[in-house]
Design a protein around this nucleic acid. Structure first.
Lengths: 346, 346
DNA sequence: TTGTAAGCGTTATCAA
DNA sequence: TTGATAACGCTTACAA
């Protein structure tokens, strides 16, 4: 690996001159510049990134920490955040905590476990002196893992800050639930069942609030008996379906596509047809929703937008003079309704 | 950020002593060690990673370069490669070329385009002096993007080396095609249609070869009229289905799940039922295959195994004395058949 | 316009 | 057992 010093020797100039040329400083003779640049090109010289950052104490680098890269929601967020950072001339370094890989779903409520894994990552990114951090949660919840004296400007994506110290970019679940309620109402449904996620989950609560608001606007009561809680998976949709189907309702709002697929499973088994005998709406717009029969009407997660927005906020802040990151900002990105054929007009 | 020098001052020792203690060197007084370690713990001292690597000229770091992080096959490969590197005490740095993000599918045959994007990444990882590189292709093909004099030990995952210089870890498509052929035969199917991928594609060719071998073993001819080429997407499955369905065949082998879903689409439209009137097999075992009705029998891509194997090969090599990376090794990882209900016995 | 010297935070060498 | 010194490759004052 060739260095500035060697370039300098070859050109019979000093290292500083080479450095100045490389960094586009003025006050350099035109022919020296040409000569040096030529040698640089010939030798394929590459600045040593470590030496550079060490000397400059700043490196235009953003660290992206993800709870698990292999979660379905993570890669798109990362991709779009990286795209924006690239465009703005920041390089990114990805740190993958692999929380699901290590512990499946058993770490959710175990802050200590997470902190233990996060700690070395944080230490490393501090030692690297990254300019900022984007923390991408694997599922939405309150996040409170950063040390008291954590100085790196940080934005949370797909998760919320507990202590209002860091801005968060999350999906607008309240509006999502509201939109689904409105749509179902507009299709003539009045008695609607809900298969929610876990009842202490933030998605669950916000989506439910939005849904209730839509009902309230139509002056329709919300019947608690029509609400069942699942665990976000196909099985729980299948499990809860019969409770709802025996009620006097015409549609089910499932808080994700997998649970909706579980409802399909149950109805298929009973010889009932979604979209004919009964309406179903999902949430997420995962791939599978387009392959169900009938294709599932659902609400698309704005993952790419979340990543970009998080990056924009972080970099926007870095550009500012006073570097005062405004806390307790929660940016809510709306979902987009995807209308397919699982809802019939009644 | 506290440094060794500061630690040294606090403890009234020299920086070298602190460094020695930190690096577990012998020949250090027991009480100095204790004293220093205590201060280190109290202050939360973190070695500066840049300074360390600069000084040591080696940093136990593996670079993982992906063509696009948001491709369905990429994240699992990355995840498992990272897991193995972590376990072996190597840190990883991910570089995302975002080829699909930038150009959709128009870069496939444009080596120059790819090289242009890869070049700065390669320069950076050379400047970082990574110990090794895992290149993860977005889809399987011959990869020949590295400069002549590229010295970083490299393993290809999900893609093949053109010049036999780098080992490659790919899926065993030949066996995959063979297994599907065997299975279909065992279920009594004799005349089988095939919807292949693009005809110059490596997956296509290998899967077809395997499929033909299964036929040959059963002394059955392969009828070229029963072979159609698609573009790996749902639409092409839908488009090619009618050509095959009018032939005198009882099953279709689709070379991926999306095209199989296209066949489902067509049959659904015509009121035919997969698994009753006709059998279909897919490939990949993407999420959707479990949600089709009937659930799709398919061949699962061993993505996690590919990532791990690639990392194992690379790190195994790094451990060796002579550091001679054996080229032209192609490691083929078998797929796993997932038997569901889309194939009927005839 | 160019060069000298110092320093970023470590660690290796060698002397004390 | 400990410490002074140099070096990794680069940039930046400042001097020439």
């Amino acid at each position: 690996m060739i260095t500035v010093k060697e370039i300098a020797q070859i050109c019979n100039v000093s290292a500083s001159t080479v450095s100045n040329i490389l960094n586009g400083k003025p006050n350099v003779g035109e022919d020296t510049r040409r000569r040096v640049l030529e040698v640089v090109a010939q030798t394929g010289y590459q600045p040593n990134y470590f030496a550079q950052s060490m000397r400059k104490q700043s490196n235009r680098m953003i660290s992206i920490v993800v709870e698990d890269l292999d979660e379905f929601s993570t890669a798109p967020i990362v991709e779009s955040a990286m795209a924006y950072c690239d465009d703005m001339g920041y390089r990114t370094i990805l740190m993958n905590l692999r929380l699901y890989d290590k512990w499946k779903a058993t770490w959710y409520d175990d802050d200590e476990k997470v902190k233990q894994v996060l700690k070395p990552a944080i230490q490393e990114l501090q030692s690297i002196r990254v300019d900022g951090l984007i923390y991408i949660a694997g599922h939405c919840r309150y996040i409170d893992y950063f040390p008291e004296d954590f100085k790196v400007p940080t934005v949370l994506a797909y998760g919320l800050s507990k202590d209002a110290k860091y801005p968060s970019v999350v999906i607008d679940d309240e509006k999502g639930g509201y939109d689904i309620g409105k749509y179902l109402l507009s299709m003539g449904h009045k008695a609607i069942g809900v298969i929610a996620g876990a009842d202490d989950n933030l998605h669950t609560q916000a989506r439910l609030n939005g849904f209730k608001r839509a009902l309230a606007e139509a002056e329709l009561p919300f019947d608690k008996d029509n609400l069942r809680y699942g665990e976000w998976n196909r099985e729980s949709g299948y499990r809860e379906a019969p409770y709802l189907l025996e009620k006097d309702i015409t549609a089910i709002f499932c808080m994700n596509d997998s649970m909706a697929a579980g409802v399909y499973d149950f109805m298929y088994e009973r010889g009932m047809a979604v979209g004919e005998d009964f309406s179903v709406v999902g949430y997420d717009n995962k791939d599978l929703s387009d392959y169900l029969r009938p294709r599932l009407t659902t609400n698309e997660l704005p993952l790419k937008k979340i990543g970009r927005e998080a990056a924009e906020i972080l970099l926007g802040f870095l550009g500012e003079e006073d570097r005062q990151l405004q806390g307790n900002d929660v940016i809510k990105i709306p979902c987009e309704m995807i209308y397919r054929e699982s809802v019939l007009k009644v």
